[in-house]
Design a protein around this nucleic acid. Sequence first.
DNA 1: CGCCGAGTTGAACTGAATCAAGAAACGTGG
DNA 2: CCACGTTTCTTGATTCAGTTCAACTCGGCG
Lengths: 187, 187
Amino acid sequence: MEQIQKLFATQSNHAFDFSVFSNRLEQKDYDKNAIILKSGQVEDYLYFVEKGMLRFYIEKGEKEITFDFAFEGNFTSGYSSFLTRKPAPYFIQALVATSIWRISYTDLQEVYKGNEQGQMIGRLAAEQLFIRKTARELSFLSQSAEERYLHLLHEQPQYIQQIPLKYLASYIGITPQALSRIRQRIN
Amino acid sequence: MEQIQKLFATQSNHAFDFSVFSNRLEQKDYDKNAIILKSGQVEDYLYFVEKGMLRFYIEKGEKEITFDFAFEGNFTSGYSSFLTRKPAPYFIQALVATSIWRISYTDLQEVYKGNEQGQMIGRLAAEQLFIRKTARELSFLSQSAEERYLHLLHEQPQYIQQIPLKYLASYIGITPQALSRIRQRIN
DNA sequence: CGCCGAGTTGAACTGAATCAAGAAACGTGG
DNA sequence: CCACGTTTCTTGATTCAGTTCAACTCGGCG
């Protein structure tokens, strides 16, 4: 909880009654491999990852495609579903035992209404998510698979080694075999 | 202008004083190839494309990488720069003679403040942009270059043929030569 | 008319996919 | 806590999509 409060304190230049928001936060723990959101469900929460990490994936025929991760200190959500109130086409899963804080859609609307500064929460989340997606788009257009892997290693060194290679490969856009060979080449 | 109003009417289930927003809209016309945002500038506007189309690109060494287009009826912006008030690392250019409506950052903040429903504009823009980026991310992970091209053709048939092949190739993530061969193969 | 950028086509090369088999790690039940 | 079975990772051989370099065509514009 202090993590979130600290984040707001650094972002906000106005006094902000944090309790309006925090009173509606709910803490949840998930076991390793637990499914947090099932494909076909409407996402009802915005999450803040306190500890652990999450994986986002879609099922495409036989195989899973991992397209996102969320680490400690990130805001995350099945965000397009959360915003549009339509079923999400993907799954969210805990990669390790994970603790999150979450706020429901309706509660977040209340925070928006009740407090001038409340919008900041939504804005912070939206900005973080959008900027990440844009950076990732450019990585596909301008970098090789090896560069994407090295960038990922550099950006999130403490978490990457805990993630199974097959998920990383999928996230980078290559097969597990290809990533295995990249690893052997750079070591 | 009616285009935008219609968009709001279909999205909003409440009465919305559209004039609070529209009074702050400014109409601008750009010649073919005009630069709308220069890399290094802070994006000060949110745009609605009334007519024509835009291209987004970064300069990487010698070459340009086109990573986005905006067509008639789209909201768009150098959005991460607009949100964060930091310089954009990319250019926005008119591909053909283009007419837009735009609202400045400060005016949009005023709309947010002055009107309960005002947030909707920001939300609509954010949703549209975020959802598109997510779909594109999945296209890089799960589709071949040829599939991405066919999808683009299918999605925006009326605009694609007006866009120079080299920009389309870049957007898809391949060389102009490779796209030229894909075209010859599918015809 | 001549030039220049855009598009096309060819040939050689390369990074990654695919298919296949073996090694290592992992968790589950006895 | 070990033993077994399953999943994950590695390594090899072959194939394939896309890159690179190069030459040529075409259309528009000065």
